[in-house]
Design a protein around this nucleic acid. Structure first.
Length: 596
DNA sequence: GCCGTTTTCGGCCCGACTGTTTTCAGTCG
């Protein structure tokens, strides 16, 4: 029997059915239904196969009795008779073309049919050849321009645009800021904001979206499309424009007059699904929503702020990080929006790598404890935990390791008292330094640190840095074993993912959450922008399960201590409140949580 | 095909831009 499909593949299958229906001019709501089911599958927080095992397919919004029945057949037998029927007289190659920018179901079908392309494996190359021979332009409904556009998209696709590159947040922040600074040089730009996924603080950003409030839209659009780093103009109209930057990143601009800027912010922050849900809801009240405002019986009302826009719909302003149609609209209607944690609530950082010569198994920090501690004072923190990697086991005797940690604890204590004299003298908040360790969890779940050394640690973070490819059952057992040690208070970067590099490992989260709750283990939200781990969806699950979390920067250099805000965004996207995050607690309360 | 504190039947988000067209279809977000 073949391996069952993962969520991504399933979503693709459902999209293919939607496309097939589109070509066949089926009821358009049926087409939309399959698209929605595909979205639901993509957004699911667990494997659909597991949902099927538990007979919970219909719990997915957008999956009803029919699609559930088809998926059931798929998991049982490996194929779906109905799907086969639907796709029977369509060229298989057309589904490959759906991945090409600018080609939808209808175009894909026409091209494959008219040019007699059948094989999905060769269709891209054959179509490139056809375009170069001018065969596309001569088809009815196509022309020279569309032929050139298709050719370009195909070649981009071949160059590896399959996996569209996504930016980490700080990178996207920097690009957006540069463009905004550029736009603001024009006096016509009254206000400019980065929106879209960047504003929602999604872990990785595809396109950069910018909105501008102006009374002279044409001028702003012109200014935008003349951005010096523009590589190519994608589109330009009176109210929006898109350009491509040299890195291959797309920037979309929308302009709006100041009186209606609130509606534009709401529209352009998205997410698309949040907006669709909101519009459906509005429709029930006889209202029609758009980026221009709210229409009632054909009469448009404009909104200068988002707050006014949401209030007109009978709900409080929903924080952008929550706008993913994951229940936030219902919560807002019920007046039950959470009071999300903020950067100003953060009172310390418990995961830092100083340059203390600990001879670690992995990379050492670049800056001294003192430098980092002084930075923490500047940030207004009440505490700081140094948790370098454990000394490498192979290079040291047990005694050497214990001596190193003994020494580190002494130095931490000395620094603590000297800095307290400093804070007292300068009238600053006192800082409390603690000495911990980030200990590797070995493949068998043992901690890479001698038992006798634990008395010289204030606390330990346990993390996985090797043997990532382990199945869910083994990996869960490995981690649970490590969490048995009483000094292990924190599970570091719990999924091990590296954005754009590797997926996280699979874990039985229900069990992990249960153990964390019982043993009061704290899950880390690692703020390092290429980790952001726990991921937001799991933060949400953790919050629901009553598991506490800590937001740490995992700084290996002074400069990284400022990245805390990225971890806070993840927490906010997971609906975490102050009470869910332990490093919002004052020092005395934190102490008791860490058993200090 | 899905879905429901105004519905289990009768609805289903909204608008912008482009290319190929003489009024619109396709694609996108």
């Amino acid at each position: 029997m073949s391996r069952s499909m993962n969520n991504q593949e399933l979503a693709q299958l459902l999209r293919a059915i939607s496309a097939a229906y589109e070509v066949k001019k089926e009821n358009r709501f049926k087409i939309i239904a399959y698209d929605r089911a595909a979205v639901a599958v993509e957004h699911a927080t667990s494997e659909i196969k597991d949902l099927w095992d538990d007979q919970k397919l219909m719990s997915l919004p957008g999956v009803g009795p029919n699609i559930a029945r088809h998926l059931d057949e798929l998991f049982r037998t490996g194929k779906v008779g109905h799907f086969k029927q639907v796709m029977k007289d369509l060229p298989p190659a057309m589904f490959e073309l759906l991945h090409i920018a600018g080609i939808g179901a209808k175009t894909a079908y026409r091209l494959c049919q008219d040019l007699k392309l059948k094989n999905p494996k060769t269709v891209v190359n054959k179509l490139i050849k056809a375009a170069k021979q001018g065969k596309i332009a001569s088809l009815e409904g196509f022309g020279e321009k569309s032929q050139a556009d298709i050719l370009e998209s195909l070649e981009e696709f071949k160059r590896g645009q399959v996996k569209k590159k996504r930016m980490t947040l700080p990178y996207a922040d920097a690009i957006a800021q540069e463009i905004i600074d550029y736009l603001k040089k024009s006096p016509s730009v009254l206000q400019a904001d980065p929106l879209g996924s960047l504003r929602r603080r999604v872990a990785t950003v595809g396109d950069i979206d910018i909105a501008v409030a102006t009374k002279k839209p044409a001028e702003v659009i012109d200014q935008f499309i003349n951005y010096p780093k523009k590589k190519k103009l994608i589109e330009k109209g009176p109210s929006k424009a898109s350009i491509l930057l040299s890195g291959g990143y797309q920037v979309d601009l929308r302009v709006q007059k100041p009186e209606a800027y609130g509606s534009m912010l709401q529209y352009f922050i998205g997410s698309k699904h949040h907006n669709i849900h909101l519009r459906e809801l509005a429709l029930n009240k006889g209202l029609s929503l758009s980026e221009h405002g709210i229409k009632k019986r054909g009469k448009l009302t404009e909104y200068a702020t988002e707050k006014a826009f949401y209030e007109a719909l009978g709900m409080a302003l929903i924080p952008p990080e929550m706008r993913e149609d994951m229940g936030e609209i219902e919560a807002a209607q019920a007046g039950k929006l959470p009071d999300l944690v903020e950067i100003k609530d953060i009172k310390g950082d418990l995961h830092l790598h100083s340059s203390f010569p600990i001879e670690p198994s992995h990379d050492e920090g670049a800056d001294s404890m003192e430098t980092m501690a002084r930075k923490a004072i500047e940030l207004g923190y009440e505490y700081l935990g140094f948790s370098e990697h454990n000394p490498s086991l192979s290079q040291h005797s047990e005694k050497e390791i214990i001596d190193l940690l003994k020494r580190k604890k002494e130095i931490t204590e000395q620094l603590n008292s000297s800095l307290n004299k400093f804070t007292q003298k300068t009238n600053k908040k006192p800082i409390n330094l603690i000495s911990g360790l980030e200990i590797d969890i070995r493949p068998n779940g043992e901690l890479a640190y001698p038992e006798k050394g634990f008395e010289f640690l204030d606390y330990a973070i346990a993390s996985i840095h090797s043997s990532f490819k382990m199945n869910r059952k083994k990996m869960t057992a490995r981690i649970l074993r490590a969490l048995e040690h009483p000094k292990v208070r924190i599970l570091g970067h719990p999924t091990g993912r590296k954005l754009g590099e590797r997926e996280g490992y699979e874990l039985d989260w229900e069990r992990i959450f249960t153990v964390c709750r019982q043993k009061k283990i704290i899950l880390e939200i690692n703020a390092c922008p290429d980790r952001l781990d726990l991921p937001d969806v799991l933060v949400r699950e953790a919050v629901k399960s009553g598991v506490k979390m800590v937001i740490n920067t995992d700084s290996h250099a002074l400069d990284q201590m400022k990245l805390m805000k990225y971890g806070v965004s993840v927490a906010r996207r997971g609906w975490a409140e102050k009470k869910d995050i332990i490093n919002t607690l004052p020092w005395e309360e934190l102490r008791s949580i860490l058993n200090l």
